[in-house]
């Protein structure tokens, strides 16, 4: 079981050949990754053992799938914390500059799901050579935090950055105020000409859109820390996205009109509450819905926010808010409680 987790982690630390890196940087980054993967081997084993103990029933035994999913959730959450967590001040400044100045930081290639490490190293590639060594040292320090108690993570932005950015796009399409920066062809072709939804965009394009929004925020004078935090949340590979290929399709809404329970949440024992804000945009023509608060619990994640799973219910919650707009109550704060029933046979699922 620990080997499966190690396999997943190894994929997250791959640097595929279509990710364009200088040979020296690739070599140094590969060495850093290898050391981290080696260090994590006993850690992953201890997580599995801990879960066996926590998930054990009265007979002292634990279902292996429960243990596996709980340990996987923990690992995915570690990846998410690492993605969100800021580094030291110099690292943060260099990271922001790299994202702001270089579209190539989003070019993670054909790999769409396991871009955790490659996206970070691409930012180092975009930094001036003189800054790379210090940034690599910062990366090493950030990796050393894995598995240790962490400080509280920075919160989600008030609105998911893609929702705020799509608001600006809709405004542009309606002939309203232009954002201070034009959209490059990769974005204008899809968002303006094809009118694609954010969810339909490939990962590299979504990253480019988040990057554009970061630049817009900076041009509007927003604090650097805020725009960088928004970028990090916007580019997070959540459990919902990463595990989607392993899950059955989400069922249709039930007869009473309530949204279905997401298969991810059923499998990984995710429960919680989402608060959705439904409103019209500034033009009064377009109905919007965004998740503005999340409180989520996941089996296997204890003593820390389950960042990797916090958006598990977002898509269903916002879709439900839009689909039920016929009730006429807009604006509306919609509190949705996501709860699994106790198993019918009285055993642990």
């Amino acid at each position: 079981m620990a080997n499966e987790l190690q396999h997943l982690l190894t994929r997250s630390f791959a640097l595929p050949q279509d990710v364009k890196l200088d040979p020296e940087l690739r070599s140094a980054a590969d060495a850093l990754a290898a050391a981290h993967l080696e260090r994590m081997k006993p850690q992953l084993l201890s997580w599995v053992q801990e879960e066996r103990s926590v998930q054990a029933g009265a007979d002292g035994k634990a279902r292996s799938t429960d243990v596996f999913y709980a340990a996987t959730a923990r690992l995915l959450n570690e990846l998410a914390y690492w993605h969100i967590e800021p580094g030291d001040a110099e690292y943060e400044a260099a990271t922001l500059d790299a994202i702001r100045q270089s579209p190539s930081v989003c070019l993670t290639g054909q790999e769409a799901l396991f871009v955790d490490y490659s996206s970070r190293i691409l930012r180092l590639q975009a930094m001036p050579a003189a800054r790379r060594q210090a940034a690599l040292a910062s990366e090493a320090r950030l990796l050393e935090r894995w598995g240790k108690p962490r400080q509280a993570a920075l919160p989600w932005p008030k609105l998911p950055p893609q929702d705020a950015a799509m608001g600006a796009v809709v405004q542009l399409l309606d002939g309203g105020e232009r954002p201070p920066l034009a959209l490059p062809p990769a974005l204008s072709s899809r968002l303006l000409s094809a009118r694609a939804a954010y969810r339909e965009l490939p990962r590299e394009t979504r990253c480019a859109f988040q990057r554009w929004w970061l630049q817009v925020g900076l041009a509007k004078g927003q604090p650097a820390g805020d725009v960088l935090n928004a970028f990090r949340y916007g580019t997070l590979v959540s459990a919902a996205e990463r595990l989607a290929p392993t899950l059955p399709p989400t069922p249709a809404a039930s007869a009473n009109g309530l949204p279905p329970y997401p298969p991810l949440a059923a499998r990984y024992d995710v429960t919680g509450v989402t608060m959705v804000w439904r409103r019209f945009d500034a033009s009064g023509k377009h109905l919007l819905a965004s998740v503005i608060e999340r409180q989520v619990d996941v089996r296997g994640i204890r003593g820390m926010r389950p960042i990797a799973f916090e958006d598990t219910f977002d898509a269903l919650a916002t879709d439900h808010a839009i689909q039920t707009a016929g009730s006429g109550r807009t604006p509306l704060a919609l509190r949705m409680v996501w709860r699994l029933p106790p198993p019918a046979d009285g055993k642990k699922p």
């Binding site: 298969p263 059923a266 499998r267 198993p343």
Partner: peptide
């Protein structure tokens, strides 16, 4: 919302 597909 009460989910049904508890185990896979």
């Amino acid at each position: 919302r009460t989910g049904r597909a508890r185990r896979l």
